[in-house]
Design a protein around this nucleic acid. Structure first.
Lengths: 336, 336
DNA sequence: CTGTTAGCGCGTTCAC
DNA sequence: GTGAACGCGCTAACAG
């Protein structure tokens, strides 16, 4: 006796309950208070349960103009930091919208960047950008929150990378390091520029005469391994006593590369980085790193975005800056 | 002279081009062939460009019944394996739908499981399940593809975990291990049962009298570290010479825990696992593990799902089984 | 307190 | 080759 597999619609519920669709709509959207009598409300609820009715998201979106979805523009979900941002964003949007909002993942490859077509197509109410990219023109009013992009204007939540970088500089200076190799990335993101510049500035301030050499590699394990394998001897020959990487991923790769090359850490070379992904605590040796709250970044970003969408705050206001702090582990030691 | 920030609609394009909305629709959806003259087609295209017109996803979805979105039900985006599955799924859906399809991420916590409400609300055309959970009733016809869940019925793509597990068993048996601790997980997923059972079966077959002891911990780094720290001495006292973990995450944690406890790997204890996440190659020592193609799992799952949605294959057919192979690194050595 | 009705923007059949 | 008209399912005024 079951109905054909066609989904029940509001009209069906209305008929089943002996009311009009408007009443059903009120009940469904929690606007029954003072409009619908408790008795009919219950009848409607029963009908909904009996028919297994679920509001059609597209129809509702079309009618209300709200999609109940936000997009996260990211670049590499495989990066543990990004993954945590995504997990945090999913949690944040659920929290801020009481479970009615969801996360649309828009990933991009290196060159292309995320495909923003769905953003233009109004698939989402707002966008979380963790990947500096161009948003579709023609949607200038679309709520946007930038993540970890201090140079971006508008709404944003970032982290106190500078404080962390300076702390790291003082830590290394205190250990006697005067010649450090800074391992940057090929990505021109402002957060990376900030990491290096703050570090170099503080090092120069606390240890006059200290030198920062520059090198760079992709943000992944293999790149770090390879780079260390190829350049370790040169670094040592250059008198470098510490390597600071822009990300843990690179540093962990470097650690593996150095181990393979037989270079003692922190005996011959100290290694430190930024992010504090979970793996930083279990590398060999455990990595000294500037802890950046990835998950919280995503969560706060989502909550902020939800607020903007709801119209709570319309103008940017003070950018949210999450704390960063240095976590000292065993990969850094006295300069030799 | 710019228009008010209201998005252009098909009517606007039609007016601008001097045609009807139907014509615009045909052009937009590539159905102009034989219906619309090349000349008017161009006029429409110009109008679209001039107005920055983008088809509204909700309206189209409502009219066509297709959402152009699929959901990925997962459990912990923070797990590198899951993250790769997600990245692969995003790539696969884009590939299979030529960029018109997108990925809705539905994450869940341990107890609750992902919130499947959007699935019931027809937000998606199909679902990729990487987290055995209950789908909303009332949508029995919804296309579903199970990932890495050999026990699931219906469409699925999984991996040849058994072959890998047996290979690992022979590897360890060949090294003389006769007493191994199997570190399982608290999750009752079929893939985990399969990993252990195939391993134990093969070990018993090649090394009669070999013993497999069982222990378990959560799938995360910290759990592995703690467990190793607490139980290492007992394992050794019990004569265990090798530890096989259900996932790399646990194994890498164990490795760190053993290092902290001063237990040599593979000198005193060999360690191996399943997954081959990128970090497995840079742990200390690099981890011997059964490589499982996570990214490909996600990609193939998405492609399959897209096919099912498009109606290519309607009945399950042969389950896709991706190859798994043992990757021997330095964490396994002769039993002592 | 409840029902009627007009959109929301697009896809598509059917006349012209 | 083109346009008018209806339906998709729901929300929100507005009547009653």
């Amino acid at each position: 006796m079951t109905r054909p597999p066609r989904r029940a619609r509001a009209v069906d519920v209305a008929a089943h309950a002996g009311v009009s669709v408007a009443t059903v709509s009120f009940v469904v959207n929690g606007k029954a208070e003072g409009r619908v009598s408790p008795a009919t409300r219950l009848r409607v609820l029963d009908a909904i349960a009996a028919l297994g009715y679920v509001t059609d998201a597209s129809a509702r979106a079309l009618a209300t103009g709200r999609r109940r979805q936000v997009a996260l523009l990211a670049h590499d979900m495989t990066n543990p930091f990004t993954a945590q941002v995504a997990a945090g964003a999913a949690a944040g949007i659920a929290e801020a919208t009481e479970g009615t909002g969801h996360l649309l993942l828009l990933l991009g490859s290196d060159e292309t960047g995320p495909d923003v077509e769905p953003v233009g197509a109004a698939t989402v109410d707002g966008v979380l950008i963790n990947y500096p990219g161009t948003l579709p023109a023609g949607r200038p009013d679309l709520p946007v929150v930038h993540l970890d992009d201090p140079a971006a204007g508008g709404h944003q939540v970032s982290m106190d990378v500078e404080v962390g970088a300076r702390e790291l500089a003082r830590h290394l200076a205190g250990l006697g390091h005067r010649r450090v190799l800074y391992l940057g990335t090929p990505r021109p993101w402002s957060t990376f520029a900030q990491r290096r510049d703050a570090f170099a500035a503080e090092l120069a301030a606390v240890a006059p005469g200290a030198v920062v050499l520059d090198d760079r590699c992709d943000i992944d394990l293999a790149a770090g391994v390879q780079l260390a394998g190829e350049h370790a001897q040169r670094w040592l020959a250059d008198g470098v006593t510490a390597v600071v990487a822009a990300t843990d991923l690179q540093a962990i790769g470097v650690l593996a590369g150095l181990a393979a090359a037989g270079v003692q850490v922190p005996g011959r070379l100290s290694v430190a980085a930024f992010d504090d992904i979970p793996f930083a605590a279990v590398s060999a040796p455990p990595l000294t790193t500037v802890a950046l709250p990835a998950r919280e970044l995503g969560r706060r970003g989502a909550v902020l975005l939800a607020g903007v969408i709801a119209g709570d705050r319309t103008e940017p206001g003070d950018p949210v800056v999450l704390p960063a702090r240095l976590v000292v582990r065993d990969s850094t030691g006295p300069a030799c």
